[in-house]
């Protein structure tokens, strides 16, 4: 040590107080930024709760939850949730019936059978599908799929509504395929190779291994993927706005027109609105229902995944 002047630790004072104060401030700013997520959740809750309370002053919660007629513009207006729930459920079921087998089989094929090269080609295809904006899928559902189903139905003598639940549900199902397949793919890959090896070594075929060993082991994860898919389907707006109807029919016929919660929220709030009318406020009550449904599903899915992870680590 010839040139430098060594202060020496013993002699050193706490010269860094200024920096520490500055870093304290930075830390608080960073914490505040993390708080934005919490504030958003609170903001959402406040928005839907506040307007919903006003709405329930005019319409009784019981009439809302159990009413079987929905016609907000009728006279007198009716705000019965049941037909919308039924419509949402119908379209979600069609979407799931499409997406679950396609997504699951895609994931199984990709993780258990496909060559690395095929995987490299097909994974981006699924990612591309996942990236298609829903307004595009809505356009496709309304202008291509719905007329096609109508023509096909008419050809075999069925009465198909021009905005059938089937068209919206099918396209929504295709939207969800990448979600289910990518989540399932991750989960299937997380099943330890030793389990597979054990099964294959006993002379089981790959498909038997998948069905008897891999899938049962991955089941909680796959279930959570499907729950997340349900949540996505319930909350999806544009496909149903463009391809499903406005008429809130209480029916489980997939060829009929039904309406959903999200369609009604969008319709009630687009265009000029006064904020005190029950019609506008109803949208927030629907928003509250939607928020709690999806929240419950998300929490259930997260719980399942967490439990499953603990199981393996």
């Amino acid at each position: 040590m010839t040139t430098a002047t060594r202060t020496g630790f013993a002699a050193s004072t706490r010269s860094t107080a200024g920096r520490r104060r500055f870093e304290g401030v930075v830390r608080i700013i960073l914490l505040a930024c993390s708080g934005v997520a919490v504030a958003t959740t609170l903001g959402i809750l406040a928005s839907v709760l506040f307007e919903s309370v006003v709405f329930f002053r005019e319409v009784s919660p019981l009439a809302f939850l159990f009413g079987t007629q929905w016609s907000p513009t009728g006279s007198p207006p009716a705000f019965g949730l049941v037909p919308l729930l039924a419509g949402t459920l119908l379209i979600t079921l069609i979407a799931l019936a499409t997406a679950t087998p396609l997504g699951l089989f895609s994931a199984i094929y990709l993780s258990e059978y496909a060559s690395p090269r095929l995987r490299r080609v097909l994974k981006p295809v699924l990612e591309m599908l996942a990236g298609v904006p829903t307004v595009v899928l809505g356009f496709f559902a309304a202008l291509t799929v719905a007329p096609f189903i109508r023509q096909a139905g008419t050809a075999i003598g069925l009465d198909v509504a021009s905005e059938s639940a089937l068209a919206a549900g099918l396209v929504m199902g295709m939207m969800i395929v990448p979600l289910i397949s990518s989540l399932s793919d991750d989960i299937i890959n997380a099943v330890p190779q030793s389990l597979r090896d054990g099964s294959l070594a006993m002379g089981a075929t790959p498909s038997e291994t998948v069905k008897r060993v891999v899938l049962p082991a991955a089941l909680p994860g796959i279930a959570s993927a499907i729950i997340l898919a349900i949540s996505r389907a319930i909350g999806e707006t544009m496909i149903v706005v463009m391809a499903a109807g406005l008429a809130a029919n209480l029916t489980f016929n997939p060829l009929a027109a039904v309406s959903t919660i999200t369609v009604q929220i969008a319709t009630l709030l687009v265009g000029d609105q006064e904020f005190d009318s029950a019609k506008t406020l109803a949208a927030f009550a629907l928003g509250l229902v939607l928020f709690f449904f999806t929240l419950a599903l998300n929490i259930a899915a997260l719980r399942l995944v967490r439990k499953y992870r603990q199981h393996y680590d």
Partner: peptide
Amino acid sequence: NLAAVPSII
């Protein structure tokens, strides 16, 4: 949870 809240909300 926020990541899975429907966009319309």
